[in-house]
Design a protein around this nucleic acid. Structure first.
Lengths: 339, 339
DNA sequence: TGGCGAAGTTGAATCGATTCATCACCGCGT
DNA sequence: ACGCGGTGATGAATCGATTCAACTTCGCCA
């Protein structure tokens, strides 16, 4: 065993020499086995095995151009919502023998750009991106260079780029209407930065529902900006408890709601009797929390699958814009028990 | 805008022509800007911008050999345990300007092999793998071809391969001892396939703790094989409820415990009064479940970070074997309240 | 004035797999 | 005996960035 030696990777011509054939033949064995006579093929195959040869993907791709890899850039890979979306993408992709590279932008446009460039340099067929910023100019540029682009969880601002999204305005409105129906008139919204489209849209939905019901958002709504994880939910909730306490809290996602629930319990505030709580995404554990969580459910898996589908369609077919509708799942956390 | 035309990617020589310099100079601007005079550099840079040139990574890598990408293959990317491990890896890696490609084997050796080949073809510097099977011969073969290998969440069977793991035997024993301390004498273990090392080891720990306490595993232990997600936990628990019901259930991970908890509640079985429940991994939501879950905590983040660290050390430094110790976090689900 | 070194620039060779025009060979029909 | 079609095999050209030996300029000092 030569453990440390810097040996050159064995190449196709090493195999050719070992098998006593030409490089062209080896390549044929690799790519079009039927065009090679059975015994030549076997000779080559044993040579490959003996030298434990592995194709150099870079050279392969440099010459052949084509490639069956696509990239996806999501906002936060540790959010179960995106994990499930990713699953959906992957399943659709493997059906066509494509492979997926996933990256998490962590909502940082710079990271998004960095991964975008990495993917492009590696010659991916296309990318599915949850954009971090309003502008998608950089994505249009990518597309102009011949790479497929599908917007993920984001409606397309331009006709020519396909997109798959869920109606977040509607989702925000659904949650708010539900809380209004329960008699709440002062609602807190633990939201993320408005530069994040999902956050801005859900807020718009909240406002819309309030207006419809004849409430003045300036009075009925307390918005608190938090980071989009459980810690953010904790911090935001602590801030609420200090001030003029609202009777209902709507969280922009279930991780935030998890943090909110934790903090409320510790503070001895009963959910839903003292404060009603609604989350967003309906992640796996939402139904099993200390107080089962009312949440807005999105078709995560389908979202990903559909995006992958549009990606694979190729640049020749016209762009499509898919918009899914979310649905409200009511559980204990928002419904005051008899009394 | 030429949307559909199959234009050749602009190459470094296009840039050279446009800027009126040689390809070598363009390459220098890209890789060693200090060796180029300021005004030449600027000419080239504007040419790059004007043509919106993006380096062809395949060609680059083919020639240069070096690359700053490493791969990771985990068992199940939708398990929060592995998401956090991945985070740890990524953070350590970006510190050194490396990038990560993650893949999920879904516990299928064939998928593992497929991604391994993909990574190798793409010329990664190394791979971090949670092996799906006992044998790591295929990984040794990869390493013999000059690619770094670090075993992730798996102690190395051979000295020459670095590994980072958590003591699962100890973890299983911790949970079991705790349940024995609580007075339970018939314990169910919702476990996965024994071919999965983590499952086998945790079972070994359970057995060891039982034996230490003078119990006969054949009597004190009921093992049920389930799939390693919430659905598995549901199915396994239903099976338990039908038969001779044990007084304690230990789940091989928190997702399984989630399913178990859900099923117990639906069946009107009180946790912890009728049945004590212990999970494994101590995921984010464990503390916030209907009944806060006792669980075995693993240093997920550090696990990943340390693995990445060993990976970056390079093949020249000697292999290392890191073994972390898990700790038990006791919550309501396993401690009978006064009475 | 001539020589020397430093700084910049050049362009051909190179990495390894694929492609394709070309060739060798064989069998068969006339 | 000759030609023809078909099957396999060949190997040079190619993809695009990097590398490096060679060359040009230019400043400076003896």
């Amino acid at each position: 065993m030569p453990p440390r030696t810097k040996h050159r990777r064995t190449s196709i011509s090493d195999v050719a020499r070992h098998a006593g054939v030409s490089v062209g033949t080896v390549s044929n064995v690799l790519n079009r086995p039927d065009r090679v006579s059975p015994d030549t093929r076997e000779r080559v195959e044993t040579a490959i095995a003996e030298l434990s040869f592995v194709r150099n993907g870079s050279a392969r791709q440099l010459r052949a151009g084509r490639i069956t890899t696509v990239g996806a850039i999501v906002l936060d890979i540790s959010n179960p919502f995106f994990t499930d979306v990713t699953r959906g993408i992957e399943e659709r992709l493997t059906a066509d023998d494509y492979t997926l590279m996933v990256a998490s932008s962590d909502r940082d446009p710079e990271r998004e750009a960095r991964y975008l460039r990495l993917f492009e340099e590696h010659g991916v067929r296309g990318v599915m991106v949850v954009p971090t910023a309003d502008s998608i100019d950089h994505l249009l540029a990518v597309r102009r260079r011949g790479i497929g682009v599908v917007l993920l969880d984001h409606p397309s601002p331009v006709d020519s780029v396909s997109s798959v999204a869920v109606d977040d305005v509607h989702g925000g409105a659904l949650a708010t209407r539900h809380l209004l129906d329960q008699g709440h008139t002062r609602i807190a919204f633990l939201n993320g930065a408005h530069s994040i489209r999902q956050c801005a849209d859900r807020l718009a939905g909240v406002r819309q529902a309030l207006a419809e019901a004849g409430h003045d958002p300036a009075e009925a709504l307390v918005e608190v900006q938090v980071s989009l994880d459980a810690d953010g939910g904790e911090a935001g909730t602590r801030a609420l408890l200090d001030g003029d306490r609202p009777t209902a809290v709507f969280c922009v996602n279930d991780l935030v709601a998890l943090g909110a629930l934790r903090t409320l319990r510790r503070a001895g505030v009963s959910v839903p009797d003292d404060v009603a709580l609604v989350g967003y995404d309906d992640v796996t554990f939402a139904a099993e929390l200390a107080t089962p969580l009312t949440s807005v459910r999105q078709p995560r898996h389908e979202l990903g699958a559909r995006a992958a589908d549009l990606m694979l369609r190729g640049a020749d077919s016209p762009a499509e814009h898919v918009m899914f509708q979310p649905e409200l799942v009511v559980r204990e956390s928002s419904v005051t028990t008899a009394g």
